[in-house]
Structure formats: structure tokens, C-alpha cells
């Protein structure tokens, strides 16, 4: 099995090449954008004392698409919040772009699962929101918003209000709003989990294309192993709470990927077995898996 993965891994350099065409610097594998070291997060209230994350360490490189899978309640959102700077770790540290993470900022933007759009603003104004906060001059905002509305295929709906949009469209608005501020890293917390299967398929394809075009670094949480295999360069598999990383799987497949190809299905199966098996110790010879 592990030779199978190393063969696929050998195919991997293919991916950076397509994206290197535009900016070779951005995708050099050794460029660490985020470094998480020995993170612990404990929620202590008068009634509960929850160990949410235990000893998490990982590095994320510039331009990578990282997926995180794990059972619900294992601390995925907690980890994302720490990276976003919405919360502080109990111990350990996060270094983003060479600086210690302290608080949130438009260089790490989050796309939530739902209900994060502003109902009193129309689609255009929602996408404009981050730019307004950032202080981008009004004259520049319109062009930027137009560009990102086009990127997510919502140009025709720019005057619509949130309650008039379908679930998939809402997620596209969130995506456009996040990308509009040109973050270094896009954090996505189960963004497609509430969508029907068909809409999810479409958005997964669109996200692959958008990622290829924008060269964003993406940290993507999901509990859908097929989604992880389809989208991720590397997939981190977490244990049930307290969350630890029990496996790291490198998905060395060419892009764009098709969810129905055997290779993707096989990777999905591999991720699932890592997820389900308590004694999972798969350790690739090339370092495909690590505990």
C-alpha cells in the first residue's frame, strides 16, 4: 500500500508546475506560511473542563491546500479559530508568516458553514464588507467586487438579498467576500457541509478552479473523506476529542481532480480507514503518514 502512495507522490511535482507558471515563488514547497507547534487548548468553565486540542503540531506551506478531517467535536473548529486568531491557545504557539499569531486579521479569513452573511446587505455589499473594514478607497472597491463576483459566478445576483439566495450561492458570496481582501490564507470550516450533494459537487469543482487561479493557501475542514481526497494536497486526520493529529496523508494526484476517478476514491478509502481505525499506524516510507 505504501508503495502505491509513493508512486502517486512521485506524480506530485506535476501540480506545482501548472501553478508555477504564474508565480514560481508562491508555490515553493519549502515556504512555510503557518507553523503550529505543540498547541493545547483547554476550555475551562465552572461546569465543564474540556480538553479540546492536545499537542498539535503542523506546518502549512505557501500555496498548499490542506484538509482536516475528524469526528465531530474533535476540535477542528477550535484549531481553525486559533489559526484565525479568534481565540488563544492554552499552550504552544502559532507562527504565521514569520510572526506570532496575535488576534485576527484580514490576512487569514474564515468561510463559515452558514449564517455568516449580513441579511441587511445585498450580495454586492456583503462582498464589499471586508474591503470597507480594511479601508480600501470606495473608487477601487467596485472593480474588486466585480472581479470576485465574476469569479464565483454571481455577477447577475449582485442586487439580491441573502434570504433570496440558495445555500450554494450563499457560500459563494462568503467565498467572494473572503477572497476580495486577498488573504494569505483562507480558512474554511465545513463550508459545504450543509449543502445538497449536487450543489456540493459543483462548488468543489469551482473551488479547485478558484484555488488554481488565486494561488491562495487553503485550510479546509470537512468530515467528508471524499471531499478531503478530492481537494487536499495533504490531509490531516484527527482523533476524537481531545483532538490530536493521528495521520497525515499526502494526496499526490494531478489536478483538476474528478471525484469519481479510482485514485480519488482510493484515497478517500485510505483517509476513512485512518479515521476509523483506532490503532491506525500507517506510516508511509516517504513520510506520507506521520503520527
Amino acid at each position: 500500500m505504501s508503495t502505491f502512495f509513493s508512486i502517486l507522490d512521485a506524480v506530485r511535482p506535476d501540480r506545482p508546475r501548472t501553478r508555477n507558471a504564474e508565480n514560481p515563488e508562491a508555490t515553493r514547497r519549502s515556504d512555510v506560511l503557518l507553523s503550529v507547534s505543540n498547541i493545547t487548548k483547554r476550555f475551562k468553565t465552572s461546569r465543564h473542563d474540556t480538553m479540546a486540542l492536545q499537542d498539535i503540531s503542523l506546518d502549512i506551506n505557501q500555496g498548499e491546500f490542506i484538509c482536516v478531517v475528524g469526528p465531530s467535536g474533535c476540535g477542528k473548529s477550535t484549531l481553525l479559530n486559533l489559526i484565525a486568531g479568534l481565540d488563544d491557545p492554552t499552550s504552544g504557539q502559532l507562527v504565521f508568516d514569520g510572526k506570532r499569531v496575535e488576534g485576527s486579521g484580514a490576512d487569514r479569513v474564515v468561510v463559515f458553514q452558514e449564517a455568516a452573511l449580513y441579511p441587511w446587505l445585498n450580495v454586492r455589499a456583503n462582498v464589499e464588507f471586508g474591503l470597507k473594514i480594511k479601508g480600501t478607497p470606495r473608487s477601487e472597491r467596485k472593480d474588486i467586487v466585480d472581479r470576485y463576483l465574476e469569479l464565483v459566478n454571481l455577477t447577475k445576483f449582485d442586487k439580491a438579498f441573502v434570504h433570496e439566495l440558495l445555500g450554494g450561492m450563499k457560500q459563494r458570496v462568503q467565498l467572494a467576500r473572503a477572497l476580495a481582501v486577498e488573504p494569505r490564507m483562507l480558512l474554511m470550516d465545513e463550508p459545504f457541509a450543509a449543502l445538497d450533494a449536487q450543489t456540493r459537487d459543483v462548488l468543489q469543482q469551482e473551488l479547485q478552479e478558484i484555488w488554481a487561479r488565486t494561488r491562495a493557501t487553503i485550510f479546509f475542514i470537512t468530515h467528508n473523506v471524499r471531499e478531503a481526497a478530492l481537494l487536499g494536497d495533504r490531509v490531516f486526520v484527527m482523533t476524537p476529542g481531545p483532538g490530536r493529529i493521528k495521520a497525515e496523508i499526502t494526496v499526490g494526484l494531478r489536478r483538476p481532480r474528478d471525484p469519481d476517478t479510482h485514485a480519488v476514491v482510493d484515497f478517500a478509502a485510505e483517509i476513512r480507514s485512518a479515521l476509523q481505525n483506532d490503532e491506525y499506524t500507517g506510516r508511509g516510507q516517504e513520510g506520507n503518514f506521520a503520527i
Binding site: L86, S104, A106, V109, F112, A116, F129, G130, I133
Partner: peptide, 18 residues
């Protein structure tokens, strides 16, 4: 106000006044 709507403002680095 839904929590995520306030958190979104925080994500984009909004000040208290904003």
C-alpha cells in the same frame, strides 16, 4: 445577532467601533 455575523467582523479585523 447570530454569533458568526459578529465573528465575521472580527475575522476581517474590524475595530470595536466598526
Amino acid at each position: 445577532i447570530p454569533v458568526l455575523q459578529r465573528r465575521t467582523a472580527q475575522v476581517f479585523g474590524a475595530s470595536k467601533l466598526q
